[in-house]
Design a protein around this nucleic acid. Structure first.
Lengths: 122, 122
DNA sequence: ATTTGATGTTTACACGCGTAATTGATGGCG
DNA sequence: CGCCATCAATTACGCGTGTAAACATCAAAT
């Protein structure tokens, strides 16, 4: 089963640093999301059920560690979008952003560099 | 309110050609999705409520036309992903696909062309 | 040993979604 | 004019989600 958006917020915290306790997650994410303790706990439990995180007992609390990597998640999400909207091809996606004037100078520079590297490595 | 995935399938039909009747939509999308008549009608109604399509009476049936354009939809969806996963920047996204070896020859060629054009236009 | 505070687990509930059956409207036919 | 076929609209239902209250557990303090 897929990871929901709220669940992904929790994963994000764990991707930045792990393992973490539920409370640490709450203090990091609570203010921005204005979530309560129970909410975070529920999300953690659903992530456990989905095998996206692992929990290890540490005294009276648990330490949570991500099992699903950020790379895997990003991969799934972006492939999904690419397939649904751009026929699975990257260039049309970039073209879209280009038309939308969403390419910054920095983006363009980096893209150039990237293409150069692809060139160099034969 | 956002358009769901099933609703987007219906929109896709209308983006390819509009206006269309519910039945036309069904025959175009029913086989692939194995949806029934009622399903398509429901989706159309939800899209109406969301003001994503417009319905115009034509005798005893309706002709449905998209109000939300494909461009707008693609824009929303891809901006969402970009912001959530790549800090709103395009280059990291492309880099991601590059690392994942998801850039085809064709992609690379097109990206080169695109960058060239950006160059030319000043 | 009992209470209390900290944690985690279970249960709850409203809402959107996917899917469809049921009901309602309406125009054509006998 | 009344009935049937054709559409659309309403209602339904199970499931995941966002959010949280209620409940359980257990170590620590008294």
């Amino acid at each position: 089963m897929a990871i929901s958006e709220a669940e992904a917020v929790v994963m994000d915290v764990l991707w930045r640093e792990a393992p973490r306790t539920a409370e640490e997650i709450l203090t990091e994410v609570g203010p921005a999301q204005s979530w309560q303790e129970g909410t975070v706990k529920s999300l953690l439990n659903r992530l456990l059920r989905k095998k996206a995180v692992h929990a290890e007992r540490d005294g009276r609390r648990y330490l949570y560690t991500p099992l699903l990597t950020r790379e895997q998640y990003v991969q799934q999400e972006s492939k999904g979008l690419l397939d649904r909207l751009f026929g699975g091809r990257v260039a049309p996606l970039v073209a879209h952003f280009s038309e939308q004037r969403k390419l910054s100078k920095k983006d363009i520079a980096e893209l150039r560099k990237l293409l150069k590297e692809l060139d160099d490595e034969q």
